[in-house]
Design a protein around this nucleic acid. Structure first.
Lengths: 338, 338
DNA sequence: CTGTTAGCGCATTCAG
DNA sequence: CTGAATGCGCTAACAG
């Protein structure tokens, strides 16, 4: 058993209040007493018990984080922002992952609450109406960090996906491409930010007087990709598509691989752009030209506003927080010359 | 403020002891009383305060995890194993990352201890003697999950790196290669598992009567890679190297990229193998042939033995736990025909 | 400046 | 089966 405040008090010949005072530096203590306490702490190797401290102060200094899967590149990058900033404010992070199981998610939420977390950050890809409802009723600050859409009063930080896709199309157009297809995700279209990406593409194509060509993929399964590729290859040949704006980096990379298998070269035969700028975007060859989403900042910003809210210095933003994004030009897009 | 056990007791017209008993199912309670308590819990939306509970039971049900950086692929995969298994045993995970700062690390360790974590898992790449010393003195179970070497009595789970490299060399030899170079990491050589990989390579080359050719890279910096490439290209040309056994997947992929820039094709001109089987190994083209390290299991096994130790059902293993590893054959190695 | 005291919310003896 | 009482380790009035 490690030493408690009592042991320290006894050894230093003072009361536990005095020990508490020097430990927390909360009230003046005579130099002499302080010295003796410090000494006792040292020899006893005393560390305050945060659990006991939390019970009385009603502050756990812990923030709960619910993620879908650590394995996802964007999750770990966001998490990094969360952890690093939390640490700056002396907060700890209790993480739990759902692996897409909504049942599990409610259970996790309860556990976090029981552990007296002071705020919750949710980092998921999919949307879940039940969860949103639940979160809204919580009395602690919550930040909802999916990369996708929501229309509630829960705090979210994101980028302007419509603008991002417009930028991509403009960029591609500027590179001489006119036959630009958009590869979108069909699953949960209405509940995710994908519809913003889609409309950004549509608007930009219209603006530039180009013919739209949207090809959707059903989900992330192998079959869906096979399906997509069949359509895609056909379109590339028949419609002379020269550029592909893909809804995510992961998908863009998979598609580049499959294109390669079909003997279609990127960027020589067709240019490809992604969205997100995950780590692999730079490691893959050709290096992927994409929109950099500020993943670290997603985490940093949201945890910061949670902590500020806890401290009463701010209120959780009611509106979405829109972070800047920009195109990272690499190698997967080539100037088009007919 | 949420409801406490007192509120429930009052509403149900029983004592707090009775409430505690039904909540924990610890002692018999009359059906009638139980019903009333359950009802009160329901209407008051009562959730036990884990902090208070921990204080009296002296069980936090929290395990601390120290990682170097979530961003690293292998870290997040190990973490996934840790989290998932911990959850099965009703444990939560408090994560903190050091970002390579040893100073920071001691601080984090203290914080974890103050939070009354019941065990600690350390997932790092680098070694740190101070840390090892510190961990040894802790009274709670600790598992040290770096992928590298240590020679202390702290529980570690790993693979047999010597065997792994031998397997790789044998495999390459079986594919017709005789000019096989090993790319190793120089930094901290004596304190990491890299020396095992190195000796595995050396032994296997000897066994097969081949001439060794070890090329070390200093660290992960750009310059070090430039330096390596200069040597490497020279060796490939002068010594007719046809296969490269690289110490890690990350390095193997970087090297393949740089080789590409030099106009050297993988696997046509030179075959390459990695080590680890990170996610990207399969996504990269050519898909990387490598040794699969059981990353998820690293995490799962270590957390499991920590929890078993906490429960008194087992003792932390004194010896290294060696998990199986095997070669995943993909596309980066080609049969050699002179 | 310092010690005494009263809880924080809960599990757990110990008597009934 | 049940309630009253005790204390986990600590902070925060309160009274000196």
């Amino acid at each position: 058993m490690s030493a408690t405040i009592k042991d320290v008090a006894k050894m230093a010949g003072v009361s536990i209040s005095t020990v508490s005072r020097v430990v927390n530096d909360s009230k003046p203590v005579s130099p002499d007493a302080r010295r003796r306490v410090l000494n006792a702490i040292d020899v006893l190797d005393y560390e305050p018990n945060e659990i006991a401290r939390s019970l009385v102060t009603r502050k756990s200094n812990i923030i709960g984080v619910i993620v879908e899967d650590f394995g996802l590149s964007f999750v770990s990058q966001v998490l990094r922002g969360v952890e690093e900033v939390a640490r700056m404010y002396d907060y700890d992070i209790l993480v739990s992952s759902t692996y897409g199981d909504a049942e599990n998610e409610n259970r996790l939420m309860k556990i976090l609450l029981q552990k007296q977390v002071e705020g919750i950050v949710v980092i998921t890809e999919s949307n879940n109406e039940d969860r949103v409802q639940y979160l809204k009723e919580l009395k602690i600050p919550v930040s909802y960090l999916n990369r996708y859409y929501r229309n509630d009063e829960i705090s979210t930080v994101t980028i302007n996906n419509t603008d991002a896709l417009e930028d991509i199309v403009d960029y591609l157009y500027g590179m001489g491409h006119t036959k630009i297809a958009y590869i979108g995700l069909e699953r949960d279209f209405n509940r995710t930010v994908d519809r913003f990406k889609h409309s950004g593409y549509v608007e930009a194509m219209k603006k530039n007087g180009l013919k739209e060509n949207v090809i959707n993929i059903l989900d992330n399964s192998e079959e869906a990709y096979m399906d997509l590729m069949a359509k895609l290859v056909k379109e590339i040949k028949e419609e002379k598509i020269t550029a592909l704006a893909v809804f995510s980096d992961e998908a863009a990379i998979k598609i580049m691989n499959l294109l390669l298998d079909e003997g279609i070269k990127v960027p020589e035969d067709v240019s490809v752009t992604g969205m997100g700028d995950i780590t692999m975007a730079e490691l893959y060859r050709p290096k992927l030209t994409t929109v950099k989403e500020p993943l670290y900042d997603y985490g940093a910003v949201s945890i910061r506003s949670i902590i500020k809210t806890i401290k009463g210095e701010e209120k959780m933003p009611k509106e979405k927080v829109i972070l800047p994004s920009f195109i990272v030009e690499r190698e997967s897009v080539k100037k088009y010359r007919k």
